[in-house]
């Protein structure tokens, strides 16, 4: 569990359009790395390329390499399905499977990995994951209700429970709180603080206060203009980025001068 990611010279394309250019960075294990930047700068595109979800879109591809503890995820013989089982993802909008109960949602990923599971094992995994996502006490009496019967914040925590049920090496979160109210957001942020004991976490956020609150390291992305590729401007310890950034563009962005 908790492996490091090394990104080298990453170019990301949608068909012929170069969306992100020349990103190189290291994502440390057992820490939270936040991606910030204005809309369209490619931060979501980068995070989706980390678990090979980017290529799900027709015509999408990357150049460069992304290594998980030294193993290139984009090597020819690597199966993207296996990559996604090691690197979990939480999306912008909560997306529990509506046709499954809460219980079935949590173990959905486990079922893909190993088809045979005793009822007792399954129940243990469900309880462990829901406790891990701080949701157990709220749903333990209605595990057979559909996942869509929960509130938005609960659904998002259910999605986190589903992602951590398979005990991934890395957990990616693409604006996990942008569809949630402040109280649910707080619950998720507390949860992120707890999860980083065990997981490598990458979070994309539009909310700079959130990045400052939850992350250990922050990467700032920017783009020169519309139609230009996004680039990594600067990456450093979060306190440094928010107090004394090296680049002028970063300072302008975090001080609210643009974006």
């Amino acid at each position: 569990m908790a492996k490091r990611l090394d990104i080298k010279d990453l170019n990301i394309y949608y068909s012929d359009f170069l969306a992100v250019e020349g990103v190189s960075m290291a994502v440390e294990p057992r820490a939270v790395t936040a991606f910030i930047g204005p809309s369209g700068c490619g931060k979501s595109t980068v995070i989706r390329s980390l678990n090979r979800m980017h290529e799900v879109i027709p015509g999408a591809r990357i150049e460069g390499s992304i290594a998980l503890d030294g193993e290139n995820l984009y090597a020819r013989e690597v199966d993207p399905v296996r990559v996604r089982r090691q690197i979990g993802m939480v999306f912008q909008r909560p997306n529990p499977f509506p046709t499954m109960s809460i219980h079935a949602n949590v173990i959905a990923g486990m079922k893909l990995n190993n088809k045979r599971m005793s009822k007792k094992q399954a129940d243990e995994i469900v309880e462990r994951s829901l406790r891990g996502a701080n949701l157990w006490n709220e749903v333990k009496d209605r595990l057979n209700r559909p996942g869509s019967s929960l509130s938005g914040g609960q659904q998002q925590r259910l999605c986190i429970a589903r992602a951590i049920a398979v005990q991934p090496d890395v957990l990616l979160m693409d604006e996990p709180c942008s569809a949630l109210d402040p109280i649910s957001t707080l619950a998720i942020e507390d949860l992120i603080g707890e999860l980083k004991q065990d997981y490598t976490i990458v979070i994309v956020t539009h909310n700079m206060q959130q990045a400052a609150r939850v992350s250990d390291r922050t990467a700032f992305f920017n783009l020169a203009g519309v139609g230009q590729p996004g680039r990594l401007i600067e990456m450093d310890a979060t306190e440094k980025i928010f107090s004394n950034p090296t680049e002028k563009a970063t300072e302008d962005y975090i001080s609210g001068r643009f974006g």
């Binding site: 979800m53 399905v81 996604r84 979990g88 499977f97 509506p98 990923g109 893909l112 992602a163 398979v166």
Partner: peptide, 19 residues
Amino acid sequence: LHEEAALALGATRWEMIRM
């Protein structure tokens, strides 16, 4: 959203369709 949820969990295309 749901298709991506399944794929991100490591479902193959057929598993995604089934889920």
